[in-house]
């Protein structure tokens, strides 16, 4: 019994040392990953040797639960360690390698991640799997983009800067005059354009807000000098720093985006089965996939880009998160707080 006990203690000690080595290795690898950037780090942490490492880590945690009676006796420690196992298991199951394995062994054909480009008024079921958009796979349902819109914080701002570096931030209010200070005159926004266009009529330049597709936000600004001279300037959001060489002021126009919204309908067998306004932080969840507002047509606002992620393994990871959080809060806080309260109630 003594020899058995001694060898068990030796084994436990070995497990603890291995755990420390595994933690230290992950720390070093994470620092390395932080230096190489997210894209390369993702590729690095999904390689076969790292998959072996993740597997070993999960097994080590499981073995620790078996050989350390304290990890079973103390509920907080058990849930923390079990939570870590679930996070690793869910992560591996949902990873690229996990998806490949599921396809080969279980014949589960599910897209892990990709993106969809959907034009307004059209339906799309192809998910683009590579950056160039050459490889794609079809979903068993389609998404229809009813409308895409961008919302901006109000008011937008006109920035006015003198050549010697003095700067003003002026809220854009059409018709309102803004005094620039003594000797500098005033500035006034005369007109705001969503889609600025210039054309010639009877030999004269005519500036108009084109109602057709396109986006070229601009301001018409009048600068009145103290001597009474008035100059009109056009300031373009997409072309900052556009000014004339002799101008006393540099003007720029800035609108802060408050939201991107894609009005999406899910179409299955010719019928609309779900609808949602997809926004950043508010993805659409349907058919085992999440769809996220990712990008858009910044030239004309005609299409939206949604990123697509499979939910494989996700709920195992979430279960692990719950266990890890509850275990940590219970073990480090609540059980001590309850101990403190007990004598008082007694």
């Amino acid at each position: 019994m003594g020899i058995m006990g001694n060898s068990m203690n030796e084994f436990r000690r070995a497990i603890l040392w291995t755990a420390l080595a595994v933690i230290a290795l992950l720390t070093v690898l994470s620092i390395y990953g932080a230096f190489i950037g997210a894209e390369r780090a993702q590729e690095f942490f999904n390689r076969i040797p790292l998959a072996v490492y993740w597997m070993f880590f999960a097994m080590l945690l499981a073995v620790a639960i078996v050989v350390f009676p304290r990890l079973v006796r103390v509920p907080g420690l058990l849930t923390v360690h079990a939570g870590c196992i679930l996070i690793l298991a869910g992560g591996m199951w949902g990873s690229k390698l996990g998806n490949d394995l599921q396809r080969r062994l279980l014949r589960i054909e599910k897209i892990r991640d990709g993106r969809m480009v959907i034009y307004e008024g059209t339906s799309e079921n192809r998910v683009l799997l590579d950056d160039a958009g050459r490889v794609s796979k079809a979903l068993p349902f389609s998404l229809r983009l009813k409308d895409f819109r961008i919302e901006y914080y109000q008011p937008a701002n006109l920035y006015i800067e003198t050549r010697d570096g003095r700067r003003w931030k002026v809220p854009v209010e059409v018709g309102k005059q803004f005094a620039l200070g003594e000797g500098l005159g005033t500035a006034k926004v005369v007109r705001a354009f969503e889609n600025f266009k210039m054309s010639k009529q009877d030999g004269k330049n005519v500036f108009l807000d084109d109602p057709n597709a396109g986006s070229n936000p601009a301001l018409e600004v009048q600068i009145a000098q103290p001597n009474g001279q008035v100059a009109t300037r056009y300031v373009f959001e997409k072309f900052p720093g556009h000014s004339q060489g002799q101008d006393a002021f540099l003007l720029s126009y800035h609108r802060a985006i408050s939201d991107f919204i894609s009005e999406i309908e899910v179409v299955e067998n010719g019928k609309v089965v779900a609808a949602k306004d997809v926004e950043v932080n508010y993805p659409l969840h349907f058919g085992g996939y999440h769809f996220y507002q990712s990008s858009y047509d910044d030239k004309a606002g005609q299409f939206t880009v949604l990123s697509v992620y499979s939910d494989t393994g996700l709920y195992i990871v979430y279960a692990g998160y719950w266990l890890l959080c509850l275990g940590a809060v219970w073990h480090f806080w609540l059980r001590h707080a309850l101990k403190r309260l007990r004598p008082k109630s007694a």
Partner: peptide
């Protein structure tokens, strides 16, 4: 991260450094 960007772990430098902080205290 899952709600906003699509993945619960993006291997972003800040994520990795916050994991490093957490791991040091685990150690």
């Amino acid at each position: 991260g899952k709600q906003a960007w699509g993945d619960y772990w993006g291997w972003d430098p800040k994520e990795l450094w916050s994991l490093v902080s957490w791991l040091v205290y685990v150690a």
